[in-house]
Design a protein around this nucleic acid. Structure first.
Lengths: 241, 241
DNA sequence: CCAAAAGTGTTACTATTACACCCATGG
DNA sequence: CCATGGGTGTAATAGTAACACTTTTGG
């Protein structure tokens, strides 16, 4: 693999992705953990090739981490404070991994490239968690889904970026009808409600919620879902359009 | 003045500013016209120094064009398509200005720098039009306020950027209570209403509008404003907080 | 005293929230 | 036939839009 500094990237500009998923009534974020000693977690990120648009770059980064092509994604903010540099984090990483890094020492050019000030475009993505096969990059020890309220402390301002993504998600959820991107192909109304409750961290009244969602006229009612439970079987729905 | 390529800017990243003002019941945008032959209009723009945040850069650019320091501004979107380059526009400009450019020929290095692909962060600003003293840069023939519905055709995607800024302005106007940034220190309720009508391009009912705005509890009612007209004098208001 | 425009109150409508009831399901 | 959870209808409330009336102002 070519090192970043040798590739034809836009300089000092990166993309950070907040990948949202939903499972077991919890809103989750896909966060890789780095292979190095010292417990470093960092958002999936990447750079922009000269020949691709920023949306294409975000799509490429997301496909690399999730294995899926058609992903709902949206830019939500640029993070451009002067303090945004990998330097302090990388120095600590090198300090803690001196022995392991001995042979495959980062060369000077590489170190300078990645420790310069970076301005980052924040993208968030909504995926059906069941369709995702989390992919490790060559510096990831693991890639896991974390409940948004039980995240580890990530590097730099990545926790703040996630919080910012969540705020934007809440603001635009109804307006752009994007919630259904987090659900499987078919789902019950209760599942939609629990998803909303996970996102907004507050309860909704069952009957009013159903009315509100159905009044959007974007759901097709399918057959009933028999679970074997001793109660009325709920309908399944599919998202249209 | 140093040429861009010699300065310590972030590469291939620019800031485009949509400066909104309000006058004579019209929403206006401050647009400079370039000195070159061929009628080129371009949004106030600039680059980001290594030592300043993107917000600071936007503030610097805005202060340079308006002469005022404390400006309400907000980033609203990144424009990052691959086609975004000054090349075609600059080639046409050079073609049309061959004779004039003869002596002060752009050098190759300079041309290469400014014709590379650029990714631009869009900021919009809201100003009290009476406080602004439009400043020409050294390549501006004039800087004028244009009614947002009677804009000239600007270079590149700048018309699209303005339309995008307006959409964001509409979306966040009430939520962030920013309308008052477009008005002078004191104003009548009718002026607020006409401002809203200019922004949303639709009429509002007078009495309901008054109630809505007063219910925000952010206005202080001052003395009456006597214009000499043969009708009840309206109150003046001041924005609080 | 009149026209014009501002202030305010009152009613009608609509959307949201709260409450209530009935129905399907499997043990 | 009972407990459980789902579907739906109705009443109460709040928020918005429409309408009406009164007041102030200078000629």
């Amino acid at each position: 693999m070519q090192s970043p500094s040798e590739q034809d990237y836009i300089q000092q500009l990166s993309i950070d992705c907040v990948i949202f998923g939903y499972q077991e009534k919890q809103l989750k974020v896909l966060v890789p953990k780095l292979i190095f000693k010292g417990d470093f977690w960092a958002l999936p990120a990447g750079f922009i090739y000269q020949h691709e648009s920023i949306d294409e770059a975000a799509r490429r980064i997301l496909e690399g981490r999730t294995g899926i092509k058609d992903i709902y994604l949206e830019q939500f903010r640029v993070f451009g404070d002067t303090g945004r540099s990998n330097r302090s984090f990388l120095e600590r990483l090198i300090e803690l991994n001196r022995t392991e890094l001995g042979d495959k020492q980062l060369n000077r050019k590489e170190f300078d490239w990645v420790t310069r000030r970076f301005i980052s475009i924040g993208y968030y993505a909504l995926v059906d968690i069941n369709k995702v096969n989390p992919q490790k990059s060559d510096i990831d020890a693991s890639v896991d889904w974390y409940n948004i309220r039980h995240l580890p402390t990530l590097i730099m301002d990545h926790n703040e970026i996630i919080e910012n993504a969540l705020e934007t998600l809440r603001l635009h959820l109804d307006q752009k009808l994007m919630a259904f991107n987090l659900l499987p192909e078919t789902f019950t109304m209760k599942e939609v409600q629990e998803l909303y409750e996970a996102i907004y961290e507050k309860p909704f009244a069952r009957n009013n919620f159903q009315k509100k969602i159905l009044d959007l006229n974007v759901l097709e009612r399918l057959e009933k879902k028999f679970t074997g439970a001793a109660n009325k079987a709920p309908y399944l729905y599919r998202f249209l359009r």
